[in-house]
Design a protein around this nucleic acid. Sequence first.
DNA 1: CGTACTATCTACGTCTGCGTTGAATAATCA
DNA 2: TGATTATTCAACGCAGACGTAGATAGTACG
Lengths: 216, 216
Amino acid sequence: MLEHATRLFAERGFSGTSLQDIATSMGLKRPALYYYFKSKDELLDRLIVEGVNGPAHELAAIAKRSDLGPAERLHAITRQNVKWVLTHTDLFLLLVKSESELSPASAKKFNAGRRDAADMVAAVIEEGVAAGELRPVNTRVAALSVFGISNWTAWWFQPGGDSIDSVADQVADMALASLQQSDLAERQAMSPRRAIAALRQDLDRLEQTLGQDRSS
Amino acid sequence: MLEHATRLFAERGFSGTSLQDIATSMGLKRPALYYYFKSKDELLDRLIVEGVNGPAHELAAIAKRSDLGPAERLHAITRQNVKWVLTHTDLFLLLVKSESELSPASAKKFNAGRRDAADMVAAVIEEGVAAGELRPVNTRVAALSVFGISNWTAWWFQPGGDSIDSVADQVADMALASLQQSDLAERQAMSPRRAIAALRQDLDRLEQTLGQDRSS
DNA sequence: CGTACTATCTACGTCTGCGTTGAATAATCA
DNA sequence: TGATTATTCAACGCAGACGTAGATAGTACG
């Protein structure tokens, strides 16, 4: 029943959905709903409780993993975030569309959660820049852009088409690539010793290619 | 006065904003508004008329420019799109948040416009992939992701901080980088003759670096 | 069988918000 | 200055939506 409410609120907005609509979609009369919650506002609060800190825990866990480099963590975070958005699309859209109608307490938690998430991603990017894996950028803009590419999936993903995993993969690839240091710039910045090592790799690859191409 | 309505609708949603709210924000009584429009729905329709095909014209013009390569056009389109979103934030948020409350005719035009824009960007990306400038990807996902990174700016941009132009620049850089062929992958795909030329360039750069570093 | 609890309903009260009407006031023009 | 037009208002009617009260039916359990 919370699913029905979440779906309708996500589609038509909180104010745009009457309890009558929800009741009808469940095959009930309107007063029956008051058996489950005290008021429409309390219903909204109950719905968003699961949403405010939904992905925060998992994202923070990824951000802390020391076995991955910053770039890998950024990729994993983006991927995980897309997967959460696409498996909780209704809840996510409800949160975004009805942010202004939240109770003050919920709104506060909501904004704090968003800020924390952005700070967390910004920190990972900052780290990646320091390590030379990512391009030097305004980390706040970069972090929010990563959320943008992830969150917008909620507006266009269609369950019938591509799988959630394949979309999450490509979106995470793009998010990482959008910030990753290009090889060219990387080499210009790297030490002569490392540059020579990179050139040797290139030569190895070239040799392989020519070996395979012996027929031509 | 249309500005007042757009702003309030964008903040609190169409259903969430009463005509009383709008009147109060303008220092008028509610019935005075009916001198300017026939009904609340007509007001909404009037507001979105400018929005439905807002950036479409300019974006299409960029997409058609033959003096720019696909990658450059993608960058320009993204940049222009971000600038439009950030100079029409209220209108944009109104459109996105109240999509479900549009009149059928407006909703149809709105969806058609969105689809056209996505197709247009997808076509540019497709062209870029064919030209080897962009990575091979699902062009639909890629195009919608580009819109994601652009559109999400509406949720976080603050007029006080970075300038619209600087944000648009960085976002466009990221959007392009998210799809641009990396040097490494490029070399793996390139012919041996071109690979050797690229290696020679690398050596030249290395020689220059060492020449400058003679003191060490 | 009777009590208690669950889940739902019909009917009602109340409030908010939309839209209308007719009149009053201000601006403009002849 | 008189007439016409532009702009605003107070008062009203009405529909829709929230919330409440009390009744009804089914179920569990001693």
